[in-house]
Design a protein around this nucleic acid. Structure first.
Ligand SMILES: [Zn+2]
Ligand SMILES: [Zn+2]
Ligand SMILES: [Zn+2]
Ligand SMILES: [Zn+2]
Lengths: 140, 140
DNA sequence: CAATTGATGTAATAACATTACATATTAAAA
DNA sequence: TTTTAATATGTAATGTTATTACATCAATTG
């Protein structure tokens, strides 16, 4: 069986974490999420990390490796490659000034990397593509 | 002035850190490097981080964001794009079984990401591309 | 020599993440 | 429906990664 295509029923903690991330306009660290959820009964980092693990598994949240932070999936609903939520690989442009993150998918990039892997006999499990820089607003 | 193209003179600490990384066949965390250099008088993380900062600036070392670890530059000396050490963007294939890392440059990937950025008015500062998976040996 | 600059040493603390263990809830099986 | 297994949760402690703050030392330069 594959990853769920439509949103699975979330537990209470998963919903709380997902809602906080969805409302944020910038990536959030696990500890920032924790602070936002103190009033909802969150007390320990593990409550956040456990929820995040599931949301990552569901493809509803992404981890930004270069920031140690998390964002709600904002994958444009182009059904390219049949990716709904369980999309293949995705790239992020991260503004170092305002924190805004753009999520996008580039078919050609994906294929180039896949081809390299196939040629080398490397079996990809997960690909990270992150561009740090200045968004159009902040660069102006 | 641009990043130095030939290796600048390294300080003692920078040399020690670089040598340890060069000898390693897998990425090392800053604290692992620290432990390897205890006998050379290293006592505190900052000694490692300061050396790493310079080596990163010189383009002699790369940081693997998805591992929080560092590798000596192993950029194949293809002079594509005129990249010597101060190369543009580079990609890594990281084996999750044996730890081996392959560093490579894909011109086409670079251009696709640059084009996306240009189209969006995004000014890239640094690009991270990391493929986690199994190398040909471990996948066999 | 004074002043600046860059490198170093050390301690303390901050930020990010996991392990271990106990308890509760839910869903499937008997 | 009772038993059992699986999943979710609560809490504390600890482990790992990175930075701040401050003092010292060495080389350069005016
Ligand atoms: Zn997404
Ligand atoms: Zn911005
Ligand atoms: Zn390199
Ligand atoms: Zn391997």
């Amino acid at each position: 069986m594959n990853a769920p295509v439509s949103a699975p029923a979330l537990t209470k903690n998963q919903s709380l974490v997902f809602d906080v991330l969805t409302r944020s306009d910038a990536p959030m660290s696990a500890y920032t999420i924790l602070d936002k959820l103190r009033d909802n009964g969150f007390r320990a980092p593990l409550q956040v990390y456990r929820a995040l693990d599931k949301l990552l598994e569901f493809g509803m949240v992404h981890r930004l490796e270069s920031l140690n932070a998390f964002v709600a999936c904002a994958h444009p609903e182009s059904e390219c490659c049949g990716h709904g939520h369980g999309h293949g690989s995705v790239a992020f442009a991260i503004c170092e000034s305002c924190g805004h993150v753009s999520e996008f998918h580039d078919h050609e990039v994906d294929h180039r990397l896949s081809d390299w892997a196939k040629h080398k006999g490397f079996k990809p499990a997960k690909t990270t593509i992150e561009i740090r820089g200045l968004c159009s607003v902040c660069a102006a």
